[in-house]
Amino acid sequence: MRAELIGTPGPGTDPAPEPGVVGADPARARDAAGASSSVGPGGAAGPAGPEPDLAHHGDVEATPGLVDLAVNVRRDPMPDWLADPVVASLADLAAYPDPGPARAAVAARHGRPPEEVLLTAGAAEGFVLIARALRDARRPVVVHPQFTEPEAALRAAGHAVERVLLDPADGFRLDPARVPADADLVMVGNPTNPTSVLHPAAALAALARPGRVLVVDEAFADTTLAPGVDGEPESLAARRDLPGLLVVRSLTKTWGLAGLRIGYLLGEGGLLARLAAAQPLWAVSTPALAAATACASPTAVAAERVIAARLAADRDHLVARLSGLPGVRVAGHPASAFVLIHRPGADRVRERLRERGWAVRRGDSFPGLGPDWLRIAVRDQATTDAFTELLAEILEA
């Protein structure tokens, strides 16, 4: 299996830090701060091209009046077991937020002590805290294609970022050997946005080692469900034996809470304390904490499994319809709430879809992709049928 490593020498040429230490000289000048570099399949330097817009996200595509297949957030009505405590929390807004109960509830869900949980204002804040708290990382590497905020946060904090680009010909599968051995900060998504690939837990665990912080973005882990599995296949959320592991989770996708901003980090207590020191006071609001407590309950976990099973059926329907269209190739084996497709001229197709009232996610803002890629959110089967019928019409024209 092939991957592409894109990066510039410099910080990565220094000796590896001692075990348990990320970087040895936090005062080192970063001449290449904010830059990024890439390496192609087989380790060759990747072709030069326009730098992707890391700040572009699906909400920019989903303008009012369009059918939204660009944003991966469910919009079903909020269940009472979630809405009631959120609404009730509004009576307590005169008091400063107390994260203790929510932290304990999330910890219990994942079989961890509370000190191994850090609540955040969405998963995006977690990436910012990592980038700011670990400024002494010497060789940060981001595995792409994936959600662009981890790299954007690193670059904003002054890091020189290297990219490992996974190979579409190999289904965007992760080969741990492609990640440089001396990378002391590694970021990877699972399941990965936008490819919808679910990497084996063993492949991710192989990336953990003393002296390295391994960040696994599991924002969509609750959308995955393997046949016969009552849980989240390939999740590392309960793993306490892997050195330097940080798992990033989000509660905004399945439960439609993007506007509330709630997520959390799981990891070793000392490492989380470093991140917490970079977090503003009272960063997570009282209503968001109420949502975190509710979403960690057994009722919520059981509901997630039901939703994931329904999502799998809807995803299979979308993949079947897309696979029957001329020139359309579905990437890999989708496992989450979205599907990545390739077709020459896809960006022009996206523009035609917008003209007809439909929004999909462009692919060229993701490192490792380009204008011939589109990401499509999984919706109910009636919506999928209407969309693919229009898409077929556009492709035939």
Score class of each variant (00 low, 15 high):
residue 200 P to E: 05
residue 295 C to Y: 10
residue 311 L to Q: 15
residue 262 I to M: 14
residue 229 V to T: 10
residue 292 A to W: 11
residue 220 F to S: 08
residue 241 D to S: 08
residue 267 G to F: 09
residue 230 D to W: 07
residue 239 R to L: 02
residue 232 E to M: 12
residue 250 S to A: 11
residue 258 A to Y: 12
residue 221 A to T: 12
residue 295 C to R: 12
residue 304 E to D: 14
residue 252 T to P: 00
residue 241 D to E: 13
residue 200 P to D: 08
residue 241 D to P: 07
residue 313 A to V: 13
residue 312 A to S: 14
residue 293 T to V: 00
residue 246 L to M: 07
residue 245 L to G: 09
residue 252 T to Q: 15
residue 236 L to K: 01
residue 311 L to H: 14
residue 262 I to A: 15
residue 277 A to K: 13
residue 206 A to V: 02
residue 196 S to N: 05
residue 319 V to K: 12
residue 292 A to V: 09
residue 218 E to T: 03
residue 255 W to A: 14
residue 230 D to F: 09
residue 280 P to E: 06
residue 242 L to Y: 01
residue 271 L to A: 10
residue 231 G to I: 04
residue 296 A to I: 02
residue 202 A to S: 14
residue 247 V to K: 09
residue 215 V to Q: 10
residue 261 R to L: 13
residue 288 A to Q: 06
residue 270 G to C: 07
residue 263 G to C: 08
residue 265 L to R: 12
residue 214 L to I: 11
residue 278 A to Y: 01
residue 291 A to P: 13
residue 203 A to N: 02
residue 249 R to K: 15
residue 258 A to R: 14
residue 248 V to A: 15
residue 298 P to L: 11
residue 307 I to F: 10
residue 313 A to L: 15
residue 282 W to G: 09
residue 220 F to C: 08
residue 264 Y to N: 04
residue 239 R to I: 01
residue 236 L to S: 03
residue 277 A to H: 09
residue 275 L to S: 05
residue 200 P to S: 09
residue 231 G to M: 03
residue 241 D to W: 10
residue 223 T to C: 14
residue 245 L to D: 08
residue 318 L to F: 11
residue 269 G to Y: 10
residue 220 F to A: 12
residue 236 L to F: 04
residue 217 D to L: 09
residue 300 A to T: 06
residue 243 P to T: 05
residue 279 Q to V: 05
residue 261 R to I: 01
residue 275 L to F: 10
residue 294 A to W: 04
residue 214 L to E: 08
residue 290 A to E: 04
residue 287 P to E: 01
residue 311 L to G: 14
residue 233 P to K: 05
